[in-house]
């Protein structure tokens, strides 16, 4: 069944872009007693980008900048407050129940905490059967065949033995492989991996990232790899976006971004990282000095200006920069310095 891939490749009305996100906002209303509004969390605040079929993009940003909210919105788990989301040419919010379900088969989801992502009371066999059952694959033999193939693909062998285990009987790395197998089972066109290795042992991070990279290449998947750790992006993705305070501040091909960062925040991230090829890459790094911006009362103008060493008084704190200055051909930056 190559339906998802075929749909992705022949996406009508667009030139190879699988996912088009345009001016996406996801705000959360904070309420007291269920009705009194006490504030709005602007978790995703005007994000635009496109993702081509088979393209891997990293989303980088410090904790609380809205990366997961963006992922959940893309997965249809949060309703966007505003903006448009086109997948394979169709607008997500206009999909009916059946189409939304079909969309969900096309998007795989790999979460941060592999143990939490697996229902603890189900055997691996059952966990992997669930998406297939939900998507109407009734024949047990067919399900088992697909489960087996998926387990083998993510390097869990022998499949029969693993299938009989409960999540707590597996190591963290094995759990994350099961999660990846589940994400691949429905033969998606796109994978969203939200910090897939940040809770794993340093020793297995590279393995899991390599696995993700391999399946992404083999299936020509679009991959949105979310991370707070710039050091893990280089070898695994084509492009990278840097998020700050609910907005994308810079996006570029990953080599260009790492070599010629255009936004002061990206620069700060990189300098905090030191040598991205260092042997101990993967250890949590200090983020740039200063506090992460509040998403309830974000700073005026450019959200980075209170922490920015190059902030131009009378400019940066007044007007938010548009997201698409192009100081270099491959770069798109939201910074007045690059006007």
């Amino acid at each position: 069944m190559s339906a998802p891939a075929a749909t992705a490749a022949s996406a009508p009305g667009s030139d190879s872009a699988l996912l088009e996100v345009d001016g996406l906002y996801t705000h959360f209303e904070l309420r007291q007693w269920g009705f009194l509004r006490t504030g709005t969390v602007r978790a995703v605040d005007g994000v635009s980008f496109t993702l081509d079929a088979g393209e891997a993009t990293a989303v980088v940003g410090e904790s609380g900048c809205g990366k997961s909210s963006l992922a959940r919105t893309l997965l249809g788990l949060h309703r966007p407050t505003a903006g448009s989301l086109h997948f394979a040419g169709s607008e997500l919010s206009s999909l009916g129940r059946a189409d939304l379900k079909a969309y969900r088969a096309q998007v795989g989801y790999v979460q941060q905490d592999p143990y939490g992502a697996l229902p603890p009371f189900m055997e691996v066999r059952r966990i992997l059967a669930e998406p297939l059952i939900v998507h109407g694959i009734r024949r047990r033999a067919e399900r088992w065949q697909r489960i087996q193939a998926a387990l083998e693909e993510v390097g869990l062998a022998p499949a029969t033995e693993i299938a009989g285990k409960f999540p707590h009987q597996l190591s963290g790395g094995q759990q994350q492989r099961v999660v990846i197998a589940r994400a691949l089972l429905l033969r998606p066109a796109m994978l969203i991996a939200d910090e897939p290795v940040s809770m794993l042992d340093a020793s297995v991070r590279v393995e899991i990232l390599t696995l993700l990279h391999r399946v992404q290449q083999e299936h020509r998947l679009a991959l949105l790899y979310i991370t707070h750790d710039l050091s893990t992006v280089r070898h695994y993705v084509d492009r990278a976006m840097v998020m700050y305070g609910g907005r994308v501040v810079e996006q570029a091909p990953v080599d260009a971004l790492l070599r010629h960062p255009q936004h002061p925040y990206t620069e700060a991230l990189l300098s905090a990282l030191g040598d991205p090829d260092a042997a101990n890459a993967g250890r949590p790094r200090p983020v740039p000095g200063g506090e992460a911006p509040s998403l309830i009362h974000p700073p005026s103008g450019c959200r980075y200006h209170p922490r920015c060493p190059h902030a131009m008084a009378g400019r940066c704190e007044l007007e938010p920069p548009p997201p698409d200055f192009r100081p270099r051909p491959e770069h798109r930056v939201a910074c007045w310095l690059r006007e």
Partner: peptide, 10 residues
Amino acid sequence: PYIEAARAYG
């Protein structure tokens, strides 16, 4: 998270 995952696969 596994409930979120279940929602995500429909």
